[in-house]
Simulated assay, not measured.
Amino acid sequence: MSASKREELVQKALESFYRGGFHAIGMDRLAKETGVSKTAIYKHFRSKDELILATLRLRDEQFRNWLTRRTEALASDPRERLLAIFDALGEWFAEPGFRSCMFIKASSEFQTRGEPIHTMSAEHKHLLARYFAKLATEAGARDPEDLARQILLIKEGAIVLAHLHDPAKVTSDAKALALVAVEAGIPGTQP
Rank of each mutant, 00 (worst) to 15 (best):
T171Q: 11
L67A: 13
A162F: 01
L89K: 03
W92S: 12
E123Y: 09
R81I: 08
S172D: 02
E91F: 06
G140A: 12
D166F: 00
S37A: 11
G157I: 05
I85Q: 01
R142Y: 03
L127R: 15
S2I: 03
R130M: 13
F45S: 02
T137A: 12
R81Q: 15
I25A: 13
E15H: 11
A73I: 00
I159F: 06
T137M: 06
A158P: 02
I186D: 10
T39P: 00
Q111P: 10
Y42K: 07
L179M: 09
A174F: 03
D87T: 04
I186E: 12
L161D: 13
F63H: 13
R70K: 11
V182Q: 02
A40D: 02
D143S: 10
E50K: 11
A122M: 12
G26R: 09
V36G: 02
E50Q: 15
I154V: 14
R29V: 06
A54K: 03
E156G: 10
A184K: 14
S47I: 05
P96A: 12
F98A: 01
F86K: 00
L82Q: 00
F63S: 13
L82V: 12
H165K: 13
G35C: 08
A13D: 01
E50M: 09
K38Q: 11
E138A: 15
V10D: 01
R19N: 06
L161K: 07
L83T: 04
S2M: 11
L164C: 13
G35K: 11
L135D: 06
G185T: 08
A158C: 07
H23V: 14
A13E: 01
A136R: 05
A176I: 01
S2P: 11
G157M: 05
L67F: 08
R59W: 04
L89H: 03
A84I: 02
I85C: 00
A24W: 06
T189C: 12
W66R: 15
L74E: 02
L82M: 15
D77I: 08
R79V: 08
A141T: 11
R70A: 08
S121I: 03
E156Q: 13
V36D: 02
H163N: 14
L67C: 06
Y42I: 01
A40H: 13
F22C: 01
V160L: 08
V180W: 08
D143L: 07
P167R: 07
E61Q: 13
H23Y: 04
A162T: 05
M120V: 04
S172Q: 02
G21R: 07
L56A: 07
A3I: 14
R130E: 12
A133N: 06
G114H: 08
P116W: 07
T189H: 15
E61A: 15
A139G: 12
T171V: 00
P78N: 04
A129I: 06
G97D: 14
C101N: 05
R81W: 09
Q190C: 10
E95S: 09
E109G: 09
K175H: 01
H23D: 05
F103H: 10
V10Y: 01
